[in-house]
Design a protein around this nucleic acid. Structure first.
Lengths: 187, 187
DNA sequence: ATACCCTATATCAGTATTGATATAGACGCC
DNA sequence: GGCGTCTATATCAATACTGATATAGGGTAT
């Protein structure tokens, strides 16, 4: 089992889902810290089923094609629980913008500034998205600090919180970088 | 060319290196935002060379085996410069601890707290490492804000700065999470 | 009707990446 | 001489992952 297996089981543990559902959830909110494509998700569901960790039932629908609703088996829930409480080796950090920044000394300051601003826009957009989710979550759950530890809502809130702080920190750094570049261009 | 190609070129653009050197640099500092194993680095160097972006010379050494010193060609430097000033699609975010947190509601609070503390120790260790590097960098370069934009030292400083803030932010969130868990255990 | 979009599942070829293993020179230790 | 360790390069099989493509049911618009 790979991390993706447990990401999917983690979604299924909250509610039964189809592959197509999971695909959407891989965009948001799971995609904020783990992601996969169609071509990985469908085979992975088959793998989970073959391993006895998930099962599915075909659900016909009136206005759309039938879907396969997946849910974790008892064994699947147990495997998830066990994996979650075992410290995992972190996935390697990969930040392509930092690879660029590492060689930023090679390009003209004006270009470097543009690049930084472009990155800033991307992260600002992401932060807005997170804040919209937080808004929605607040409306649904009320005071988040009242959430019970054994509720999925608490877990969702905790990961969202990290997403928010990540983007805020990234933005602050990007602004610092932009300032540092701009400061050397003007005088 | 893949991101790794430009990560390696970015290192070679600063100083000629052997595959073995690059391997160490992939631990620190490049590994903080991009990484690769031996088995990917050596073939990748061959690929860069085949593409005319790098070349090597064999350098015999007195007290150790001979090494192949690589350096970027003119074409390699140009390719790097061009890639750096082109906005890149971000690599998917992957944080295995957040995958765990997403299903943290399934495990006993005491276990959840342990897990969080373990993660905290890892990130605290990382932060210390970064701060040691900053210390060293300060001793070598003096006031970092005086660094010229077109100097590799500036680029190194900028990426290190991001690493420091990332770890500080992560630690703050971990402490917040630990407190939230602990608060529900005591009363 | 037929063209287009959304839901839904699936497969394939190719590439990126990992983990294990092999080889070898040079050093120091016992 | 034999052993372990560090430097140094290389390859292999297996797996993870991407991007493209296929199929098909049902809706709506033209």
């Amino acid at each position: 089992m790979i991390p993706l297996s447990y990401a999917l089981l983690g979604l299924l543990a909250r509610a039964p889902r189809s592959g197509y559902d999971l695909l959407q959830l891989m965009e948001e909110p799971m995609g904020f810290f783990w992601s996969a494509r169609r071509s990985q998700i469908y085979p992975e569901l088959a793998r989970l089923e073959a391993a006895g960790l998930a099962r599915h039932t075909v659900v016909p629908q009136r206005d759309r094609p039938a879907k396969k609703l997946y849910e974790p088996t008892e064994a699947g829930l147990a495997a998830l629980r066990e994996w979650v409480e075992t410290p995992q080796a972190p996935a390697p950090d990969r930040d392509i913008f930092l690879v660029q920044v590492y060689s930023l000394w090679l390009v003209a300051p004006a270009r470097a500034l543009e690049l930084t601003r472009a990155c800033e826009r991307r992260h600002a957009a992401r932060l807005e998205r997170y804040e919209a989710i937080r808004q929605r979550q607040r409306e649904e759950d009320g005071d988040p600090s009242a959430l019970r530890l054994d509720s999925p809502r608490f877990a969702s809130w905790a990961t969202l919180q990290r997403g928010l702080e990540y983007e805020r920190g990234y933005l602050a750094w990007l602004r610092w970088l932009a300032d540092a570049i701009a400061a050397q261009m003007a005088p």
